Computed example of a mutant assay.
Amino acid sequence: MEPKNSAESTEPQWLTEDEQHIWRAYLHATTLLEDHLDRQLQRDAKMPHVYFGLLVKLSESPRRRLRMTELARDAKITRSRLSHAISRLEANGWVRREDCPSDKRGQFAVLTEEGLGVLERTAPGHVAAVRHALFDRLDAEQQKSLGEIMRIVAEGLQPTEAGADLPWLR
C-alpha cells in the first residue's frame, strides 16, 4: 500500500481529525502499557522492561548467548545502551560476557543459570500483566486485527537497505 503523501509534495498532508484521534490514542495507550509493564517488572524483579526483553532474547538463543551487536539489533537499542544494560545484568549475576574467538573485538552476552531462574520466576507475573493490560480487554477479532495491523506497520518500517542509519547499528 502506497503512503498517501508522496515525497514530491511540498504541502504536508495533515492528519484528519479522526486520524489525529487515532494517533493520540495509540501514543497514549502504548505509553501507559509500557509504563504498566515496566512497573510490574520493577516491582517483581527489580528490572526495567527492556532488561526483561534482553533476558528473553538470550533465553531463546542457541546456548543462551548472542553477539552483542546482534542483541542490540534484535532489541532495537544502541550498542552503548546495551553495554550499560549488560553491565547492570552482569552485576546481578544474570548475564556474563564472553569474548568472541573469531573476532577479537566481538563479545557475546550469555544468560547465566541465575538469570534463567530470575526469568522463569518473573515470566508468569509478566504474562499476567500483559494479558490483563491488553488481551483481556480485546475480543478474539480485535486481537487478530491488532496483530495484523502491527505486522503491517512493522513490515513498512523494517529497513531494507544495508547501510541504513539505525540507532541499534551505531
Rank of each mutant, 00 (worst) to 15 (best):
Arg73Lys: 10
Asp74Leu: 14
Ala75Met: 14
Lys76Val: 09
Lys76Cys: 05
Arg79Ile: 03
Arg81Gly: 10
Ser83Trp: 05
His84Ser: 11
Ala85Ile: 03
Ser87Leu: 01
Ala91Cys: 00
Asn92Met: 09
Gly93Trp: 11
Trp94Cys: 09
Trp94Lys: 08
Val95Ile: 04
Val95Met: 07
Val95His: 03
Arg96Ala: 13
Arg96Asn: 13
Arg97Phe: 07
Asp99Met: 02
Cys100His: 13
Pro101Ile: 00
Pro101Asn: 03
Ser102Arg: 11
Ser102Thr: 12
Lys104Ala: 01
Arg105Val: 02
Gly106Ser: 01
Gly106Asn: 06
Gln107Ser: 13
Gln107Trp: 04
Phe108Leu: 04
Ala109Asp: 03
Thr112Trp: 04
Thr112Ser: 12
Glu114Val: 08
Glu114Trp: 05
Gly115Tyr: 10
Gly115Arg: 11
Gly115Val: 12
Leu116Gln: 14
Val118Ala: 15
Val118Asp: 07
Leu119Ser: 13
Glu120Arg: 15
Arg121Cys: 11
Thr122Glu: 02
Thr122Pro: 09
Ala123Tyr: 11
Pro124His: 06
Pro124Ile: 09
His126Ile: 00
Ala128Leu: 13
Ala128Arg: 14
Ala128Met: 09
Ala128Trp: 02
Ala129Ser: 14
Ala129Ile: 11
Ala129Leu: 08
Ala129Trp: 14
Ala133Ser: 14
Phe135His: 03
Asp136Pro: 07
Asp136Thr: 02
Arg137Ile: 01
Leu138Asn: 10
Leu138Glu: 11
Asp139Gly: 11
Asp139Tyr: 04
Glu141Val: 11
Gln142Leu: 09
Leu146Asn: 08
Glu148Leu: 13
Glu148Trp: 03
Glu148Ala: 13
Glu148Met: 08
Glu148Arg: 15
Met150Gln: 14
Ile152Tyr: 12
Ile152Phe: 09
Ile152Pro: 00
Val153Thr: 05
Val153His: 06
Val153Pro: 02
Gly156Ser: 04
Gln158Thr: 10
Gln158Trp: 01
Pro159Asp: 08
Thr160Asn: 00
Thr160Phe: 02
Thr160Leu: 06
